[in-house]
Design a protein around this nucleic acid. Structure first.
Lengths: 166, 166
DNA sequence: CGAGAAGTGGGTAAATGTGGGGAATAGTCC
DNA sequence: GGACTATTCCCCACATTTACCCACTTCTCG
């Protein structure tokens, strides 16, 4: 399915659903206030609206120590559908379900564009003040800023080891 | 597919799609102003328009400490398509996504031909005043001028050691 | 040299991000 | 059950950043 995204932050080009086009772009450093609210970058919200209909996101934890946020459609397609390919008793599925699927919450930004993350997710990802939103294809990540930097060092090592052999 | 690039900075020669012709040619030293804006060399913009339809570029970081800028088409073909061959949960893909894909932003030059690079990319590449645009095949690089010079010294050593053995 | 293109600097209005007050809601303890 | 507390939601106000515009200098080329 091809379409046009009328969004100044995205390429105004035809894209193929879920394949060619990066949705959430860039790294955005925002600050979480005392109440636990953080601003979702405006460009992300615009993507959510333009491409997914509204600003809802499903937020859950990721096993690298950050949070992942998906538009509901992507959540269904990538997380749920992926998991459901496996047998109910598959141990990887059971772990995945407990760790990733269970703690998920659906957030809707307020009028200022902020979401309130539940304390459980905040403490898991060690979020307190400096929060980094990082775009991904079809989802975005929410990081504590120092944890992210440590992760990037590891990523560099991984990348320099070369891509996986098929 | 053959065509003509109507551009006074490029040779007005026929070129074969993606093979023979270098698109972004030469090194151009421009200065970034206090707001973080830099002028994209006019010849690069002309190439973007003539060959890719408009002046958008996807800018991201590169392992070597500079920024890479791709026309969206090349970005999809060279970066995204490559990545999306791998499973969502492949660790190499996750690292690649975080290091290369996440920080990418799409920039559209303003009326004067300048792009505003986000602070995260500027600080990664150590850009402040003297910025060097260097052409490449299908993309171009954006360097801090002194970092670039240091890189060139290393490149000389590498080149004199001879090409890799097959 | 003169004209046009390229590159640079700055002002202003709009968009974005941040802080905080108070009403509504839920949850807890006597 | 009723009062108290904590949390969430909704609103307004402000600081900062960005997009857009105009003016100017420098460079290139005939």
């Amino acid at each position: 399915m091809w379409g046009i995204v009328p969004c100044k932050y995205l390429h105004n080009f035809p894209f193929r659903e879920g394949v060619g086009r990066q949705m959430f772009q860039g790294e955005h450093k925002n600050t979480m206030d005392a109440k636990g609210r953080v601003n979702v970058p405006a460009s992300f919200r615009e993507t959510l609206r333009a491409r997914y209909g509204d600003e809802q996101v499903v937020v859950t934890r990721d096993y690298d120590g950050c949070l992942h946020a998906y538009p509901p459609k992507e959540w269904d397609r990538r997380v749920l559908a992926n998991m459901q390919k496996l047998d109910f008793n598959d141990p990887w599925r059971r772990s995945y379900e407990r760790f990733v699927v269970s703690p998920a919450v659906t957030c809707v930004p307020d009028k200022q564009g902020r979401i309130l993350l539940p304390l459980s997710l905040r403490s898991f990802a060690d979020l307190d003040k400096s929060v980094l939103f990082a775009g991904g294809a079809g989802h975005f990540e929410i990081w504590d800023i120092t944890r992210r930097e440590a992760q990037l060092e590891q990523d560099l090592v991984m990348l320099r080891s070369g891509p996986p052999q098929p």
